[in-house]
Amino acid sequence: MDLLRSPGGCPWDAEQTHASLVPYALEEAHEVAEAIEAGDRAGMREELGDLLLQVVFHARLAQEHPGDPFDLDDVARGVAAKLVRRHPHVFAVEPGAAAGGGEDAHRRWDQIKKAEKQRTSVLDGIPLAQGALARTQKVLARAARADLGLDVGAVARRHADGEADAGGPAAALGARLLALAAEADAAGIDAEAALRAALRTVESAVRAAEAG
């Protein structure tokens, strides 16, 4: 990557910026998910490599920043330190800390992360650009782990009745989608993955129809 970005390297690589690479990072992450869900081991190995390439590419770009440079080693050190901080029950950085079950460990992770980043809401840090279905489940999961006593069904009904929206068919549909996402979250089902699986069935049917 250093050679590709250096004079005499690849003109396309030399033109890229962090912003221009965003679509590729998103695409590669989705292709990793697709390979995993398809049980494609060779594809998973390849797509993980492509995703890793995005990390390497961004780290190489970051070295060139005039005021705040960092490199791949800085990225690796940062994530290693984060794992230690957020797993005190494993790395014994907090004497007597016990994780309990997986949900307890996840809740502790959220609490430590909130303190580290000085966040005021459990919703802080959820990407706005994330797909609506995946983002809905993320919001519901965060709210549930925070023990806020949120009645999602009541919220959905209020939305459908127009108290939180302009009302109409779109509000009613949104409420039903919210209720479905909540149902999936309560059952421990990844709604986004479930929808992708159903869509693959549709795609197979379309291709079969095209084949006559």
Rank of each mutant, 00 (worst) to 15 (best):
E116A: 07
T17D: 01
D104N: 00
R176V: 04
D190C: 08
D185H: 10
F70D: 06
K114H: 13
G174T: 02
A146P: 00
A59P: 03
G96Y: 13
M44S: 14
E34M: 09
E203P: 01
A25K: 07
L140W: 10
R119P: 02
E37N: 07
G125I: 12
A105G: 00
A171L: 04
L173W: 04
L177W: 09
P88C: 01
A97T: 01
I112D: 00
H65R: 14
L123K: 04
A143T: 09
G153M: 06
E94M: 09
E163S: 12
D73M: 14
A33P: 06
V90E: 02
T136F: 14
R60F: 09
A146Y: 07
A62C: 08
A175Y: 03
E116K: 13
L150Q: 05
H87A: 09
D71K: 07
V32I: 09
Q54Y: 11
A19V: 12
G96A: 09
L177T: 05
E37F: 07
K114W: 15
P69A: 06
E34Y: 09
G168I: 11
V139Y: 04
G67N: 06
H89F: 00
A29Y: 06
P169Q: 09
A115Y: 14
K117G: 04
L133S: 10
H58R: 15
Q54F: 12
A175V: 10
A209F: 10
P88M: 02
G101E: 00
F57D: 12
E34I: 08
V155A: 03
G100Q: 00
G168P: 03
V206M: 13
C10I: 14
L128N: 06
L128T: 13
L4K: 12
S20H: 02
I112E: 00
K82D: 08
E163L: 15
F91Y: 11
L3P: 08
V32P: 01
I126R: 01
A42D: 10
L21K: 13
M1H: 08
E210D: 10
A59Y: 05
A182C: 07
P95R: 09
R200W: 12
A76N: 11
K82E: 11
M1C: 04
D104E: 04
A14Q: 15
R5F: 15
A198R: 15
A208K: 12
D190S: 08
D185K: 05
D68P: 00
G101I: 00
G212N: 09
L61P: 02
A164H: 13
A181M: 06
L48I: 10
H89L: 00
E15C: 15
K114F: 14
A179K: 10
R5K: 07
E203M: 11
A92H: 15
E47V: 02
R176F: 05
K117I: 06
G188E: 04
G125V: 11
G168Q: 07
T120D: 15
A97G: 00
A171T: 01
R207N: 13
P127N: 05
P11T: 11
K113F: 13
R135G: 03
T201Y: 08
R135Q: 08
P169G: 01
I126V: 14
